[in-house]
């Protein structure tokens, strides 16, 4: 499983990088960016799902 941010949906709500700073950072405008590439470890997957469940814009996605 991988985690992605849909840049068209992200509005910089800031939830992902607060919940999981190991997986997400932010750009100059404060929009979220994914810091990890490739398959998530089990612990990362849990955090990614938590970030997904807290994004008001539904911009964070956990995908195959």
């Amino acid at each position: 499983m991988r985690v992605v941010i849909d840049a068209d949906l992200c509005q910089g709500q800031g939830r992902c990088f607060s919940i999981a700073p190991s997986l997400f950072g932010f750009d100059e405008l404060g929009n979220g960016v994914v810091l990890v590439t490739g398959e998530l470890t089990e612990g990362e997957l849990e955090l990614a799902r938590l970030a997904e469940a807290n994004c008001p814009e539904h911009a964070v996605g956990v995908i195959e």
Partner: peptide, 15 residues
């Protein structure tokens, strides 16, 4: 509350 997609700061382009 672990899952909290609140919209206190608005939604969309005017966040």
């Amino acid at each position: 509350r672990a899952e909290n997609r609140h919209v206190a700061f608005g939604l969309g382009i005017h966040r």
